[in-house]
């Protein structure tokens, strides 16, 4: 991931350029995702301060984890406990808890979980599936640019998305 790639979003997102140190933090954290896998990343130190949102989100995740096969009155799969644990750890991470905008967590019929942020500036969906690598959808609502890829394929876009989320007020 070279510095030339790092300029990918800067021309259209000056707020990221003006806070490069913050961007570097995100880049380092996400580097863990891509070098060692999602599961290792989420064992980053957690914020110990109680958070009402986190408590509600973890309870919601627990409920999603108890969905039975056919929860859609058809053939939807249940959510694997390991996936619930992975997402629980991710949303408990400093990266997520420090964001002002908190995500929604949505089950898919295939037994996956979507972690969704929708703000004025961006739409970001991280797609966690039981039998596939994590992927994402990102839309910059200022430029209309959309990106859909595996997390590991397009780290700069994910970094930019979190940088934008971190500047949401």
């Amino acid at each position: 991931m070279g510095e030339d790639q790092m300029t990918y979003a800067l021309p259209t997102w000056p707020s990221v350029a003006s806070t490069l140190s913050g961007d570097k933090v995100f880049r380092r954290e996400w580097a863990n995702v891509f070098s060692s896998g999602f599961e290792r990343y989420i064992h980053e130190p957690e914020i110990s301060v109680p958070d009402d949102w986190l408590g509600s989100a973890l309870l919601h995740l627990k409920e999603l984890g108890s969905l039975v096969p056919g929860w859609d009155e058809a053939s939807a799969l249940s959510i694997a406990p390991s996936l619930v644990e992975t997402v629980s750890s991710f949303i408990s991470s400093k990266l997520v808890l420090e964001l002002r905008s908190k995500p929604d967590i949505v089950p898919t019929f295939e037994g996956g979980l979507l972690i969704e942020w929708h703000t004025e500036a961006i739409d970001l969906i991280i797609d966690m599936r039981p039998s596939d690598e994590p992927s994402f959808y990102f839309c910059d609502n200022e430029t209309g640019e959309e990106v859909e890829a595996y997390l590991a394929e397009c780290p700069d876009a994910v970094t930019s998305a979190f940088a934008k989320l971190s500047h949401e007020r």
Binding site: A74, L77, V106, F109
Partner: peptide, 13 residues
């Protein structure tokens, strides 16, 4: 609004 997860084909195919 509805998540994109609401706009999939049915789980039974």
């Amino acid at each position: 609004r509805a998540s994109s997860a609401a706009f999939e084909d049915d789980s039974d195919g």
